[in-house]
Amino acid sequence: MDYFLELLIGGLTRGSIYALIALGYTMVYGIIELINFAHGEIYMIGAFTALIVAGVLAMSGMSGLSVLILASVVAVIYSAAYGFTVEKVAYKPLRHASRLSPLISAIGMSIFLQNYVLVAQTSDFLPFPNLLPDLPFLANYVGFIGSTEFIIIGTTAVIMVLLTLLIKFTRMGKAMRATAQDRNMAMLVGVNVNRVISNTFIIGSALAAIGGVLIASHVGRINFYIGFLAGIKAFTAAVLGGIGSIPGAVLGALVLGCTESFATGYVSSDYEDVFAFVLLIVILIIKPSGLLGHKPTQKV
């Protein structure tokens, strides 16, 4: 039973990180129907930014929680700026082109950002300090969950609640939903659609950066390539849950994380990815629009 709980916690931790990245895919897809393949790179850039900031702060003698907070804030701002710029440079000029063009542009952007970090940093894995604080009280009460897992799952849960409130109740959230449902009509009630699209990229990138900082602290090392696999997995999670659906992305990510964790624990870690993608295929055969995806509505 303890082993099961351990695997479950491991799966939820993974799933939380996938969810933070998957939200960026699903929100962007919901609004401009583009798979933003450069999104994984934004997450990687977030982790690198946090590493650099943490390094500088450590040299200046700071430690503990203030390093985590400062490093995360800078990483979020920096990644958000990258997301914003990528959209303006690579996607906005292609807004009225055929659907294939921005997709190719996205892949190009992804390769460019990977190689840019490769040149600017190094191809080696760099050690990442564990910025997350130790929570000793956890060990006294619950044995099966470690501090980092607890913080990752907890942070993600809080962010999900905040995001839901933002989407449901704020003016910007309503504008985002309206734009996703009918872009021209949103313009016709006075929504500045360009601003909505920029905001979507900024929010998605900020979430990915938080994911990057959390997972880098957990795993303890990063390189320029971490965005690729994480991006593919998060994208899988978004499709699994129904691309375009925000709760779907979270559900898909948690299901995917747990599947991987259980496959590793009960079968073999060699089969982790096999199980993840078999799950994707099975769900898409049974429900092509994903777990919580809605069928495209016919416009009259």
């Binding site: 939903r177 449902q181 009918d182 016709l188 809605h294």
Partner: peptide, 10 residues
């Protein structure tokens, strides 16, 4: 607009 274009899921 023609066809009403209500936001279906609002």
């Amino acid at each position: 607009p023609e066809g009403r274009r209500i936001f279906p899921r609002l």
